[in-house]
Simulated scan of single mutants.
Amino acid sequence: NWLRGLLRIGIWQKRAKQYFPDTVKTITNWFDEIIAYFDNRTKSGLVEGINNKLKLIKRSAYGFINFENYKNRCLLSWAF
């Protein structure tokens, strides 16, 4: 259950801190979001997909003169 998982993550973090300090820090920084998943079963996959698509358009749009062209390109990618 939720509380048991929370306890196990805490125990793992204590043991793993000396071996995986960066991972423990990342989990600590995102702890509220991790817990929110278990509360609401919300996922960030859709948002991550949108961000990935925008980054791809931005990379391919190198050299666009103004923001309006970038905005139109983004809007067109979702219209079709």
Results as ranks from 00 to 15, higher is better:
43 K>G: 11
58 K>Q: 04
44 S>Y: 12
56 L>V: 15
70 Y>L: 09
28 T>Q: 12
10 G>W: 03
32 D>L: 06
33 E>L: 11
69 N>R: 09
70 Y>M: 04
3 L>K: 12
68 E>Q: 07
56 L>S: 09
77 S>C: 05
32 D>G: 08
47 V>F: 01
56 L>I: 15
59 R>D: 01
61 A>H: 00
60 S>M: 13
50 I>V: 14
50 I>K: 09
25 K>P: 00
1 N>A: 14
63 G>K: 03
58 K>N: 00
20 F>A: 06
79 A>L: 13
21 P>C: 02
74 C>W: 02
39 D>I: 15
40 N>I: 09
66 N>L: 03
51 N>A: 05
49 G>W: 02
52 N>T: 15
29 N>M: 09
26 T>L: 15
62 Y>F: 08
56 L>Q: 13
78 W>K: 06
13 Q>K: 15
74 C>R: 04
42 T>H: 12
10 G>A: 02
30 W>V: 09
40 N>E: 13
1 N>W: 12
49 G>Q: 10
4 R>K: 12
65 I>K: 14
66 N>V: 06
74 C>P: 03
9 I>V: 14
30 W>S: 15
20 F>N: 06
57 I>F: 02
66 N>R: 07
10 G>H: 05
49 G>R: 14
27 I>M: 05
22 D>P: 04
50 I>F: 13
41 R>L: 15
21 P>M: 05
22 D>L: 14
15 R>C: 07
47 V>D: 05
40 N>F: 15
28 T>D: 13
51 N>G: 02
44 S>A: 13
60 S>Y: 08
21 P>W: 03
45 G>R: 08
35 I>L: 15
1 N>E: 14
50 I>P: 02
24 V>M: 03
56 L>G: 10
59 R>W: 01
43 K>D: 09
11 I>W: 08
32 D>W: 06
39 D>W: 08
59 R>G: 00
32 D>N: 11
73 R>D: 05
70 Y>H: 01
18 Q>I: 13
35 I>M: 12
44 S>P: 00
67 F>D: 04
1 N>Y: 08
65 I>M: 10
3 L>T: 13
16 A>C: 11
26 T>F: 15
12 W>T: 03
72 N>P: 01
